[in-house]
Amino acid sequence: MTYRHRHLLGIEPLAPSDITTILDLADRYVTLNRASDKHGDALAGRTQVNMFFENSTRTQASFELAGLRLGADVMNMSMQASSIKKGETLIDTAMTLNAMHPDLLVVRHPHSGAVNLLAEKVNCAVLNAGDGRHEHPTQALLDALTIRRSKGRLHRLTVAICGDIAHSRVARSNILLLGKMESRIRLIGPPTLMPAGVADWGVEVFDDMRAGLEGADVVMMLRLQKERMDGGFIPSEREYYHRFGLDAEKLGYARSDAIVMHPGPMNRGVEIDGTLADDINRSVIQEQVEMGVAVRMAVMDLLARNLGKPMQTARS
């Protein structure tokens, strides 16, 4: 079992074997997390710093818990409130923090590429917890783990990703990961929420739920940001729900054993019907949250094993 990267900046640089390595280890951490004694020691003595330049409750809590369960010392820094307001640049912040010798740096930032920039300037392992519209690799990994445990495989599945693809880092990371694992990807949404050049991504694009969901094994819904709902990208919330909101009827177009996923937090009645989201026979949304902790434990464990080893490039 090898994982030869210094950071986790995105899914893009990972090989399929890297992904399998992470998911296999995460499976073991799922077992640990379900036991009554949840303590591991893979990160004992390590310092983990969570730097969130953008609001997050769920992801930050998940990373924090993952670190604590493996014995790390965890510090949370909420960066919107602090020095950024005083005019300090991202690089200065990174250098300051670097001088305190953290081992694992978990970063979320509103600008694409900001985490890559930061990773060039520090000595520790950097985990991307979401940068702009670029990538959110641990979300894609936890989604993959959820799918693999439900479907028994990651290859030759038909996965439909629905909603605001254009602004979604979750969609980008998932498309990259599922493509590497040789699944078939469909994107469904209004053209105003599709990224330019999407036709070159090796995916199928639909603006109709019925055609897009037909025969799908997995239905992945994306959150629609409040600020995009009124007039700018779509005419209204209710028209969006009518055309693209997932309810039992639309799910009927997919395979009868199709699972429903959502990265959270959900807008019930906008992109997904509340009853469907809670249907334990179809929805794996709660399981995604559980897998999130296990995947983050696995990634941090693997990165900690590589600390201090010579690595090829900052990129990987």
Binding site: R172, P195, D200
Partner: peptide
């Protein structure tokens, strides 16, 4: 510039 590269990098783009 908008296109595959811009979208994959998640950067704001112009046609």
């Amino acid at each position: 510039t908008s296109g595959k590269f811009a979208s994959l990098r998640g950067l704001p783009a112009v046609s």
